[in-house]
């Protein structure tokens, strides 16, 4: 089955972020295709490489980056939600006149249209949120 994932909550704050990554791993292991993972609301905070969780804890962002690399996943952060919350890639930092970017490897920033397209193109859109 072709699946897309929507992550609506931030890492560590909410179980949704963990559940989304666990579900994605399980779906891939069962041979399903992941068309896209889209991050919205505080979910965009999953994509900052500046988070430093304690060493004896999981690192959710690094897990996404690793999973994306191994499975060629498309991890998309909503630009409107990201702008509010200070998640920037190089282009956005330049465009907004900010002095640095913080997006993690394997993620990209794009528009909400990417979420709608995922809804159109996928057999199921699976949502992780509050």
């Amino acid at each position: 089955m072709k699946l897309s994932i929507l992550v609506n909550e931030g890492p560590y704050q909410h179980q949704s972020a963990d559940s989304a990554i666990q579900f994605t791993k399980a779906a891939l292991a069962k041979g399903h295709e992941i068309f896209r993972v889209f991050f919205y609301h505080d979910g965009v905070n999953n994509g900052t490489r500046f988070a430093v969780p304690p060493q004896d804890d999981r690192n959710i962002t690094e897990e996404w980056t690793k999973l994306a690399k191994e499975n060629d996943l498309d991890l998309v952060i909503c630009i409107a939600a990201a702008q509010r919350r200070g998640i920037l890639d190089e282009n956005e930092a330049k465009r907004q006149g900010k002095d640095g970017d913080n997006i993690a490897e394997g993620f990209r920033i794009s528009g909400l249209g990417q979420l709608i397209e995922a809804g159109i193109q996928s057999d199921r859109l699976v949502i992780f949120g509050d």
Partner: peptide, 17 residues
Amino acid sequence: YALESLEVVLIAAAFEQ
């Protein structure tokens, strides 16, 4: 949530679904 939901709906309108 309500505000960002409305933002999704407005963008989605362009997709003629």
